[in-house]
């Protein structure tokens, strides 16, 4: 089995997104209890980094293939955005779905970075500052929610739109 160049980068993007979402629950537990400081520091730092890699790979590597304009007479199956827009029954997957995904996902790394930096900077002080932990928890949940919306929409669009563009 071999992967094309596009399939490889799509897998990287998907893998990073899944990694971010899966490690979230541990982060929530650490922030809620204020325990296991060392793991909290490493975990939030890794999550912020993964969030950045996910949005950068999605926006700068995968998205241009999705939104490429088809030349005259081209098979629209190779151009997901054009394919969705050409079919009124599924066009909302681009107009609402992809439009929301491409923007809201970028909130996640900004919020995750604020959480990670504060955890690294304040360290043991966090264990004693319940209010600061609660604020970080809210930002952390917001980071997860925005990433979750982007991820879920991406998964649905992948199911609805053809993926033959990945063969290129």
């Amino acid at each position: 089995m071999s992967l094309t160049h596009r399939e490889f980068w799509m897998m990287v993007h998907l893998g990073l997104g899944v990694m971010f979402l899966h490690t979230f629950f541990e982060g929530i537990l650490w922030l809620h209890t204020g325990e296991r400081l060392r793991r909290l520091r490493i975990g939030t730092g890794v999550m912020a980094l993964v969030a950045w890699l996910t949005v950068v790979s999605g926006t700068w590597l995968v998205y241009p293939w999705y939104r490429a304009k088809p030349p005259a007479g081209a098979d629209l199956a190779d151009y997901p955005r054009a394919y969705l827009l050409a079919n009124p029954s599924i066009s909302q997957w681009h107009i609402f779905g992809m439009e929301w995904k491409e923007h809201v996902g970028w909130l996640s790394p900004i919020l995750a970075t604020a959480v990670a930096w504060t955890v690294l900077r304040y360290g043991g002080q966090l264990a004693r500052d319940r209010r600061l932990r609660q604020v970080l928890l809210v930002l952390f949940v917001a980071a997860f929610t925005t990433a979750g919306i982007a991820g879920a929409l991406g998964a649905f669009i992948n199911k609805v739109a053809p993926n033959t563009f990945l063969d290129g």
Binding site: I110, L111, A114, W117, T118, R121, Y122, Q125, V135, L139
Partner: peptide, 17 residues
């Protein structure tokens, strides 16, 4: 640490959003 640094990180995340 005074809470100013945490406040700066949190408020700037709001500004970025």
């Amino acid at each position: 640490l005074p809470n100013g640094q945490a406040g700066a990180a949190i408020l700037s995340a709001g500004i970025g959003s």
